[in-house]
Amino acid sequence: MKVIAASKVHGRNHSDSELKAALGSHLPNPPRRTDRLTLLALLAAAPLKAHLQADTGLYLAATYPARQNMFALLENVCAQQRLPKPFEFVNSVSNAAGFHVAQQLGLQGPNLFIGAGPQVWGHLLDLAGNDLERAQIRQGLVLLVEEDEQDGFCVQALVLENGGDALSARDFVALSDSVEVVRLELGS
């Protein structure tokens, strides 16, 4: 398995509107009424569109769900005893981000969403590598979305194909060292 393309997006304290504006330069028709997790995943995936074929599986990991969306739902339903807004509820189904990435990039393969823990790169590579080896797909797009209050957000993406040696590295820097990484640093 080999890495053929990579991207990394980094930023801090950016509103959803700012993320949406940044996304506009990569996608002609970005999805409406999406949550932050979807926007972040799309920001890293969209610059890789030229490298991707339809027969691609998506393996997305995130540390957290779209928390503001989740809090809005909790406030509405549990504190205010109101019905949730339909689009907020649908977005809370956490593979909504994977759906929008697949739809925007035209990916037709498997679409998995996992929680990002300490072994996340190993799990992402195992899942994608397995589908590649079994010829279920021609390419794998792996995406890791991380965001916290101290460091802001960081989204890393790799496009994988069969061929080359087994990938033994388990961090983005080492995994992407054979390709030129598309970097997007959102200013403050």
Partner: peptide, 16 residues
């Protein structure tokens, strides 16, 4: 939340 606790990042555990 139903008991009155304010929502915030401290409330949401990591997915994993």
């Amino acid at each position: 939340v139903a008991a009155g606790e304010a929502t915030g990042n401290q409330m949401a555990p990591a997915l994993d």
